[in-house]
């Protein structure tokens, strides 16, 4: 997945968060977005993910030379972030089945168990995920982001709320993704930054 962004700027209430951001990312890269708190890392990541429209500039996406429009970006992109909320009234398996169904994927119970196992969640819990701890919730969000094996993975502070074992799961996913696709991480954590091939510093207002 190739991404190239030119002259990206974002304003809220007429005030500029950041302006004139240019970068490009190639397949097989782990790209880091770093910056102080409030510099607009998450905002930039949301713009890259097509969740927000930029106030200025444009981004183009391509897979092996064919363009992908923003409308269809969600099909080829996985996204995990602290500000995402999953459907807490459903159990873990029901959540995964739901996402698969909306995406039009066939996932049997063995596929679901394998996914839960991969991120280190129990496979036999039937209760709503409302009761899950924040670390377990973060692992659920990782499943949400890799369920459809997307060529592009966007991770916002991926190791927040996670223990050592959880961090290993994240870096395993990143390493796996790097083989065939692209990863963009927005973070301030040194261990995350160590995973990145290149970084971009966002200098927004504080």
């Amino acid at each position: 997945m190739q991404i190239s962004a030119t002259g990206i700027g974002k304003k809220f209430n007429r005030r500029s968060i950041f302006r004139e951001v240019d970068f490009s990312v190639e397949t097989g890269e782990v790209f880091g977005i770093i910056g102080r708190n409030g510099s607009g890392k998450s905002t930039l990541l949301r713009i890259i993910g097509g969740l927000l429209s930029p106030s200025a500039g444009s981004i183009s996406y391509g897979i092996n030379g064919t363009d992908v429009s923003v409308e269809h970006l969600h099909r080829v992109m996985g996204y995990a972030a602290p500000y995402l909320t999953l459907y807490e009234e459903f159990s873990a398996a029901e959540n995964i089945a739901l996402y698969a169904k909306i995406r039009g994927l066939q996932k049997g119970s063995s596929d679901i168990a394998a996914l839960l196992d991969r991120v280190g969640l129990p496979t036999d819990r039937k209760d709503p995920i409302r009761a899950y701890s924040s670390g377990m919730m973060q692992r659920m969000k990782l499943i949400f982001s890799i369920l459809h094996e997307p060529p592009l993975l966007l991770l916002d502070e991926p190791i927040s709320n996670l223990d050592r074992e959880g961090m290993a799961v994240v870096y395993d996913i990143v390493a796996e993704q790097k083989k065939t696709g692209t990863v963009i991480i927005a973070t301030n954590d040194d261990e995350d930054i160590a995973q990145c091939d290149r970084t971009l510093r966002v200098e927004g207002r504080a």
């Binding site: 993910g49 409308e71 969600h74 996204y79 500000y83 995402l84 909320t85 999953l86």
Partner: peptide
């Protein structure tokens, strides 16, 4: 209110 609209946005058109 639950903050799931972004999740939904990531799933479908």
């Amino acid at each position: 209110e639950r903050g799931t609209s972004m999740t939904l946005q990531l799933l479908a058109t």
